[in-house]
């Protein structure tokens, strides 16, 4: 894993990618820092971190677009996949390299609170909490980008698709309000979920019995919920299901400087899920 990590990190800085990412990030961050903290003489640094989360939309695709797709295009994936490396080593090495570039950039932005500290007393732990949240949010977006990059051998497609996926996550909260909340819609949505899961299993395993089994188990779970938890569960079910994917919603605590365990666990789980999907995608390519 270490070898892939080192190579990937070097690749970021032997091409323009790493510098473009850092430069663009720091430009926007600096602008907002000046506008919010310096011009208004405000000590609220977390407001800057909260404002600049939109940078992820633009910079994460830059960071992740080439990770897997370039390997396939250059055919260097043949080297990696025929070496005695585990797939998870390859994926983790690449993920951590991207996260490291992001972390290095964040380290530079630490200058801003230090500048602020010359002018008064800062709520240090609040800022640390804000940084942790900001870092975890960014890392989750990077895992999405890495996954999308493993789906195509074209960097541009990877970048555009990642950008689109991030935008969707961005507008998720406003979308949720427009979703139907009735009980019937909830039940229909549950049925769609079960069908999608069964289809997914069928297309990955090509085994009709397993997929029927998944469908039966899924239906059983929802019937059990209906009988024992009550029909109220399905009211607003769609909204709650989508809200689970709302990465930004969970960032709001950090923004206030609150450090709670559940969003941290959520972000780490979210990244792990996408890393796992990336490994599965690579695995599947060899079998098809």
């Amino acid at each position: 894993m270490l070898a892939v990590y080192k190579r990937e990190l070097r690749a970021y800085f032997s091409s323009a990618t790493g510098f473009v990412f850092m430069g663009f990030f720091l430009l926007i961050a600096g602008f907002f820092f000046a506008r919010i903290n310096l011009f208004r003489a405000s000590p609220n640094y977390n407001a800057v971190l909260g404002e600049i989360t939109f940078i992820f939309l633009i910079v994460v695709p830059i960071l992740t677009m080439r990770l897997m797709s370039e390997e396939v295009r250059q055919k260097t994936d043949q080297l990696l996949l025929t070496s005695p490396l585990k797939l998870s080593d390859i994926v983790l090495g690449k993920y951590f390299a991207a996260v490291t570039v992001f972390l290095m950039t964040l380290a530079v932005t630490c200058l801003y609170p230090i500048i602020l500290s010359f002018f008064g007393k800062l709520a240090v732990w609040e800022i640390v909490g804000g940084y942790i949240g900001f870092f975890l949010l960014g890392s989750s977006f990077i895992s999405i980008g890495l996954f999308i990059s493993s789906l195509t051998d074209n960097q541009v497609i990877a970048a555009v698709a990642t950008f689109t996926a991030l935008i969707l996550i961005w507008v998720l909260d406003s979308l949720i309000q427009a979703l139907p909340t009735s009980q019937a819609s909830g039940i229909v949505f549950a049925a769609i979920l079960v069908a999608a899961a069964a289809l997914f299993v069928y297309y990955t395993t090509r085994n009709i019995y397993v997929s029927v089994g998944v469908a039966v188990v899924g239906v059983a779970i929802f019937v059990a919920i209906y009988l024992f938890v009550g029909s109220g569960f399905f009211e607003g079910f769609i909204g709650r299901a989508f809200k689970w994917f709302s990465l930004l919603d969970r960032y709001s605590d950090f923004r206030l400087g609150l450090l709670s365990l559940s969003p941290i666990v959520y972000y780490i789980t979210f990244s792990s899920a996408f890393l796992f999907l990336t490994v599965r995608t690579l695995e599947k390519k060899r079998w098809s």
Partner: peptide
Amino acid sequence: IGYLPEFPPLYMDM
């Protein structure tokens, strides 16, 4: 195994 594929798998930036 040592493998030389049809297109040598080289990282151009190294």
